[in-house]
């Protein structure tokens, strides 16, 4: 361990990676922060994966355009990896900006994981990638790690008894300690997606700015409970308005559940072929 020395906060201002949309960036005080773990919670088709795919592309942008000039590591636990969607998105991105490296997909490292133990093993080796690629290879350093999704890794293998819940919670913190270590040591932004669960009774523990969120007419909250909730720095909720079920209008909403630098707030957005866009 290096010599113990305090740091001056004046030298520690957080770098943000743009979401590619100025309205969503405004909600997030500039974008997804480096050095922190940001969680996107939402039901399936709420736009979590779409936003992640967009972020691995915006991360490639130079700092002058709000990016972090970085390549990404995309760890997925749901199969298959949405390669076609990423390809389509990168094509429409390339049309609007000439600042992406060519081909952009060459700077996105993809790894599938099948279990929580598998994820831990991957995270224990990620630092080799950080110091690894030489400058001469033209490879950008990794500045963004996406885990899509954390919830899928905990669907099976754990029962609802005290021993298993304890084991599961220990696993959350083992993952979170590694993620935050990577975030702080290498200044990378970490984005993790999570699923929702129905909130049935009023006894539910309230976490953050919302007791529950309405999504597609259901009363929902983040999956994985209080333990995992204590593992992330920023929690954002992506919900679908009830009307979108009936009218097939693809209107969604991003809400700040909690975040050390974010006030309560929300922004509606739509998913188009060329990306995720906030509307006012």
């Amino acid at each position: 361990m290096a010599a113990i020395k305090p740091q001056n906060p004046l030298n520690l201002r957080a770098v943000k990676c743009t979401t590619g949309c100025s309205k969503l960036d405004a909600l997030l005080a500039g974008g997804v922060p480096c050095g922190l773990v940001t969680e996107l919670v939402g039901e399936s088709t709420a736009g979590k994966t779409q936003l992640c795919l967009q972020l691995v592309l915006t991360a490639l942008l130079p700092k002058s355009l709000g990016g972090i000039s970085s390549s990404s590591l995309y760890i997925h636990s749901e199969f298959p990896f949405p390669l076609r969607r990423l390809d389509a998105l990168s094509r429409s991105f390339s049309q609007t900006t000439s600042c992406l490296p060519d081909p952009p997909l060459d700077h996105i490292l993809v790894r599938g994981v099948h279990s929580a133990t598998d994820l831990l093993a991957v995270l224990d080796r990620v630092h080799f990638l950080m110091s690894g690629p030489s400058q001469s290879s033209g490879q950008l350093p990794i500045g963004l790690i996406v885990i899509d999704s954390i919830a899928a890794l905990f669907r099976a293998d754990f029962d609802c008894n005290a021993v298993d819940m304890r084991r599961r919670s220990g696993m959350f913190f083992a993952i979170a300690v590694r993620l935050k270590h990577l975030a702080s040591r290498f200044g990378v932004a970490i984005v993790v997606t999570n699923q929702v669960m129905d909130i049935l009774n009023e006894e539910k523990v309230r976490v953050g700015n919302y007791e529950y969120v309405w999504s597609s007419g259901r009363k929902v909250g983040a999956a994985l409970g209080l333990g995992w909730g204590s593992c992330v720095n920023v929690r954002l909720f992506l919900s679908k308005t009830a009307s979108s079920v009936m009218t097939d209008d693809n209107r969604r909403k991003m809400m700040v559940v909690f975040g050390p630098h974010l006030p309560k707030g929300s922004c509606e957005f739509v998913i188009r072929r060329h990306g995720v866009f906030g509307i006012s």
Binding site: P9, K180, P260
Partner: peptide, 15 residues
Amino acid sequence: AIYIDTEGSFMVERA
């Protein structure tokens, strides 16, 4: 003040 941050939630812009 001494601030020991174990979680990485200390945001300078907020401070």
